[in-house]
Nucleic acid binder design. Sequence first.
RNA 1: GAUUCUGUAGCUCAGCCGGUAGAGCAUUACACUUUUAAUGUAAGGGUCCUGGGUUCGAGUCCCAGCAGGAUCACCA
Length: 514
Amino acid sequence: MEQQLSEQERIRRDKLNELRRMGINPYPAPEYHVSHVAADIKARFAQQPEAFTQVRIAGRLMSMRDMGKACFAVLQDHSGRLQMYVRKDDICPGDDKSLFDIVFKKLLDIGDIMGAEGYVFTTKTGEISLHVKHFTLLSKALRPLPIVKTDDSGQSFDAVSDPEFRYRQRYVDLIINPQVRDTFVKRSKIINCIRRQLNAAGMLEVETPILQSIPGGATARPFITHHNALDIPLYLRIANELYLKRLIVGGFDGVYEFAKDFRNEGMDRTHNPEFTVLEFYVAYKDYHWMMQFCETLLEQVVLDLYGSTAVQVGATTINFKAPFARLSMREALLQHAGIDISTMDEAALREACKQRHIATEAHMGRGKLIDALFGETCEGHCIQPTFITDYPVDMSPLTKAHRSLPGYVERFELMVNGKELANAYTELNDPLEQRTRFDEQLKLQARGDDEAMFIDHDFLRALEYAMPPTAGIGIGIDRLTMLLTNQAAIQEVLFFPQMRPQHQTPQTHEQPTT
RNA sequence: GAUUCUGUAGCUCAGCCGGUAGAGCAUUACACUUUUAAUGUAAGGGUCCUGGGUUCGAGUCCCAGCAGGAUCACCA
């Protein structure tokens, strides 16, 4: 395929050929032994200078300041950046100065991967640097790397800020924008911290099917695909809830899964077609226990991440110190909307929506109407972590009926910064009741609600073998990460967010059939 | 899906009332033995997102499309 090369790309290809002509392999095979990393050198050199007399580091060349017979260059490895001082007479002790004059100064470029060996010292201006004795080209870059310069006050110049560029070429974004890397490191820490706590609580990490013939456990439009050998449609899972509960039936008393779920719906700054949800289920517990577990779980995550329970999100400080506030759905609406849903029928709720200019649909039952009222009047008020408890039964088909409030279920959502972060309940384990609830979903479907749940008969069969009383929860990991890293867009916490194809899609390749 | 803004050099951006393209960084060449967004001098580098239209003439005005952002609606 013929491709148009820019001037800078042509020059770099010329340099590649020149290196080969000089007998230098621009993509060498042997291991390059690395003895130190940049951040470690900077952190420990002042205390133990004697430990850094022989140092080998490797990374990407990020800048080069040519001073004639010496050069200052910056190498970036996974830990950070370190300045290198490269002097002609050190690199070329003999008469042949080409290694410095030609190879280092002319044939290396910003973006190249290289290794450097030497001793650490502090420059006249006080910067801890590597005095380079030997260098090795490890991989030649053929495309120019966008240069972001930062001055002493930390202000950066010409930073690549175009989200399209950053998301489509995340690898470049990660190289040149250190704060982006930091966000993803935090994401990993969040997941690790949660996993550690769940393991410590004796739960088992499990994997359940992503390809499902009945996409259950939530209400959403699924992606559909086709299995050739079985000649059946399969759906990408929208939730893993029903599978995890089958495992509770099977005798595991605590199971969890960090699950990629898929929903074939709109995309915006808070929705990506694939996203990550942590779900876990614990036998012999109820939703009160789950609230306690959840608040200490999240408190510990924030503590691990920041050393304090407080997080700055935009202009507000959110404190994850347990216990979190608890407010029933009825109390919340009483407080923020001045209405008492316990005394209102469907018509009264519809009227309340109308008064507040909230759009309603004919198929909306009590549950959806209350949900709409709550979303409109209460949600935005829940800035500090708040458990909203006790939801109407008709919007929670998998939840056990409330122990004392008829018409309600034992469910809570955790609201933080005006948004839902977790959804949990005392699981419905009465198989006959579950069958009735599924039937009600069918009726909703008949009323025109295209989000009603599919019926999973195998799941009902599992419940008929008896599932212990169980508490379960789902926590949106992307949303949690957004909150804890102060990011407004889900694209900022996903390495490779879904994007529209940039150019006209080439002819779809023939599916290889087996 | 609706509204709105944006798309110009590798990157960040100017480009007036319509007259065939500009800066900084990066690149190339030269100078300089501790620089800090290094500096100085010089040079090269463009499918102005794509396709139509208006016009003697379009980066600029009009229409359509593509991609991205923001706001709104729905979903997590």
